[in-house]
Structure formats: structure tokens, C-alpha cells
Write a protein that binds this DNA or RNA. Structure first.
Length: 114
DNA sequence: AAGGTGACCCTAT
DNA sequence: CATAGGGCCACCT
């Protein structure tokens, strides 16, 4: 049974496709918004990845949204995140990810390259 | 229906 | 290395 597979996935909203990519990032590793967009088949849609993740706030989702950071290796701060940005740092630290004095993560070390 | 917005990114100073 | 400006595109008034 194909179930709600191929067809539903093809028409799935953009954000569902991004979630599918983020779900594959292993614990203790990080990826950038741009990478998620490209791996989902939508190069140039980095901003939409951010919006997709923004939608997850307060949903108690199992998707490891904390593993997505910006191309500069930093957690993206915004007042609209209502503290979820600080939570992101805490969650990453709990996974063993180290931030430097400037709050940056070494992408060469922690970046995920499947 | 048109314009503003943003968990972004790249290039040039 | 830090900042600035332009490009980007789905969502929301």
C-alpha cells in the first residue's frame, strides 16, 4: 500500500518538505537554512525555511528545529521568537555543541554533510 | 490586489 | 573580521 505517500508528498506544503530534511539531522550536528532549502530541492528558499521553523513554535514537535542555524554559524535571534532563540542555544549545548566566545558554532566541526 | 515583512544568504566595502 | 546593501519568495494584512 502506497498509503498517503508519493502523491500526498508531491503536493505537500513547502514547510512539510523542509521538516522532512531537518528530521534527518543527527543529534549534536547542525545545518544551515540554505542547506535545508537546497536539500529539499528548493535552492534560494532559505527565508522560507526560517518561516517554516517559526511555525513550529509552541507545537511541541519532535522535529529537531534547534539544529538549524544561519550560514554564519550563529543562532538567529529575533524578538518574534519569544525566547525560543535562547532555548535553541541551551538545547544545542545539551547535545554537546560548543559555542565560541562570540556565540558562533564551528561549522567545519559540527556542520552535517550527509 | 498590492505592498510590507522576515528563525536568510551572498557580495562588496 | 564587522557592516551594509541588494536579492530572495511565501505569507499576511
Amino acid at each position: 500500500m502506497p498509503g498517503p505517500g508519493a502523491e500526498a508528498l508531491a503536493t505537500a506544503p513547502l514547510y512539510e518538505r523542509f521538516y522532512a530534511v531537518v528530521a534527518q539531522v543527527p543529534c549534536g550536528r547542525v545545518v544551515t537554512y540554505g542547506q535545508v532549502a537546497r536539500w529539499a530541492g528548493y535552492p534560494g528558499y532559505a527565508r522560507q525555511v526560517g518561516y517554516a521553523l517559526f511555525r513550529l513554535q509552541g507545537t511541541g514537535t519532535a522535529i529537531p528545529w534547534q539544529r538549524v542555524i544561519n550560514a554564519q554559524g550563529q543562532v538567529s535571534y529575533s524578538p518574534h521568537r519569544q525566547g525560543y532563540d535562547d532555548l535553541q542555544v541551551a538545547l544545542l549545548r545539551a547535545e554537546g555543541v560548543v559555542f565560541d566566545a562570540a556565540g558562533r558554532i564551528d561549522l567545519d566541526q559540527y556542520g552535517w554533510h550527509p
